[in-house]
Amino acid sequence: MMNALYVDPQKCMGCKSCEIGCAVQHSKSKTLFGAVFEEALPMKRIFVEAGPGVKMPVFCHHCEDAPCLNSCITGCLYRDEHGFIRRHKERCIACWTCVMTCPFGVVTRDENKHLAVKCDRCHKREVPACVSACPTRALQLVDLDELARRKRGRYVQAETGG
């Protein structure tokens, strides 16, 4: 089984609930009403962007051959036991190489703490906060192998006119 974040752009309403859920999860209080009053406001790790006729969140894929991880010269970024790329915060020197190498643009900067900021796939939660927050289930946690199997099924159906 290989869990992955999956987005169906046709279902994304651009409401940014995933951004809010993410920021709250990365706040001190872990509550919306607490988070908005925190002195250092929490930062989101997922970004709803718009293209022509489409809205969708852009997020970290925890790539298997991860440019951010490969380019991190201090060993701040590491892959944990679940395969998620996380930070040893104290090792970040704010060189921003990871920001430059991420092909999705989802590693950002905390300018106050001089820290690279990225998705940790809510490693303490069963379901990531962004997925829980999505009201249309545009954002889902899927088993990649299962997803591929379903797609094969749909392909066969379409091809055979079923």
């Binding site: 994304c12 309403m13 651009g14 409401c15 940014k16 709803v48 962007e49 718009a50 809205k55 009201p135 249309t136």
Partner: peptide
């Protein structure tokens, strides 16, 4: 992007049991 619920008129903030949205 602007929120699709708002664009479609599918959110309601008329009471404190909400806000509610319809998918």
């Amino acid at each position: 992007p602007q929120c699709g619920f708002g664009e479609l008129g599918l959110c309601c903030r008329h009471c404190m049991q909400g806000p509610c949205r319809i998918d």
